[in-house]
């Protein structure tokens, strides 16, 4: 039985359609990432799953039960909010135990679960502190701890890392991945960062304008993008798009080639002029123009390439993607 099933879910606010015909299946224990540009409806979808917004149409099943009219606290979910949303007047321990008290869990059990969660998240030393006395990363861990103690069937995380600085984001990302393994829980994670999506997900759901563009494992999406949007969204640097007519006159399609699939070849079909070179040590990114089309070439290792230099680029035929847009 799947942990979460969405069937033809729609959501409208007044006259604006925010979610259109969303159908998704999430298996038990899966780590699913919803990814898409800002404003595409990721948070709204998560709130519909949580029960904080009613779906305008469609059905939401959690663990096989229809939950459309079940209040959030009875859905067996826990949510981590983008803004942490810690109760400012409660200390860390009470923040974590409030929901359990509300459910009527026994005191001994509450203490045990809080201790377990705080050990897992290294919060032991902060249990008596108030949210205002914690750093951003600590607050984030408390927010996650508050979800963990409830032992939910489904974790919902809304951009949990977006308020952290770059270094902390990488380490917290790792912690979340570990947590998922330890708890063996089903997690749904929202982000607009494709790196987070690629590194964490068992399954990625790409959203655009309230519609599901593609669902699949990170590598499926990377290797077989269903359309130009998905192709351009995943991968960094982003995929290069060129009109196919450059290679074959009369072809109206668009051709897509990933930066790492381009290489220098004296007999290559693409003639490019270098505009800028990024030396990253391990990699070298060459930004060049093929006619008026900008392309990025990712070369392994260090290369002595200068701006305004003329290059010939080649690629393997099976590594190119065609799009009808």
């Amino acid at each position: 039985m799947s942990a979460l099933t969405l069937k033809n879910v729609f959501k409208t606010f007044g006259t604006t359609e925010v979610l259109r015909d969303i159908s998704i299946e999430v298996e038990k224990g899966e780590f699913v990432v919803f990814v898409g540009p800002s404003g595409c409806g990721k948070s709204t979808l998560l709130r519909v799953i949580a029960g904080l917004e009613d779906a305008s149409a469609g059905e939401v099943y959690i663990d096989g039960n229809l939950v459309n009219s079940v209040p959030p606290s009875k859905r067996g979910i826990a949510m981590v909010f983008q803004s942490y949303a810690l109760y400012p007047h409660l200390n860390v321990a009470n923040n974590m135990s409030l929901a359990l008290k509300q459910e009527g869990v026994s005191k001994a059990e509450i203490a045990e679960r809080v201790q377990e969660a705080s050990r897992m998240l290294q919060l032991d030393d902060y249990l008596k502190r108030y949210p205002s006395e914690l750093s951003g990363g600590q607050r984030q861990r408390v927010a996650i701890g508050r979800a963990v103690v409830r032992q939910p069937k489904l974790f919902l995380l809304d951009e949990p890392l977006s308020n952290l600085d770059a270094a902390l984001r990488v380490s917290t990302r790792l912690e979340i991945a570990n947590l998922h393994k330890q708890l063996d829980a089903t997690m749904i994670y929202v982000t607009h960062d494709q790196t987070e999506a690629m590194t964490l997900a068992d399954k990625i759901v790409v959203l655009r304008d309230g519609r599901v563009e593609q669902v699949g494992s990170p590598m499926e999406l990377y290797n077989k993008p269903a359309n130009k949007f998905v192709a351009g969204f995943l991968g960094s640097p982003a995929m290069n798009f060129l009109p196919a007519s450059l290679l074959e006159a009369g072809d109206t399609r668009t051709i897509g080639i990933r930066p790492e699939d381009l290489y220098l070849a004296d007999d290559g079909p693409l003639a490019a002029t270098v505009q800028h070179v990024e030396h990253l040590g391990g990699d070298t990114n060459v930004i060049a123009f093929v006619g008026e089309h900008q392309v990025t070439v990712r070369l392994f290792g260090q290369h002595d390439i200068r701006p305004r230099q003329e290059l010939k680029l080649g690629f393997d035929a099976q590594k190119r993607h065609y799009f009808n847009e």
Partner: peptide, 14 residues
């Protein structure tokens, strides 16, 4: 008052 805070309360069963 942040909406998330109230929603967190709702998820927590308040």
């Amino acid at each position: 008052v942040s909406d998330d805070l109230k929603d967190a309360g709702r998820v927590d069963g308040l």
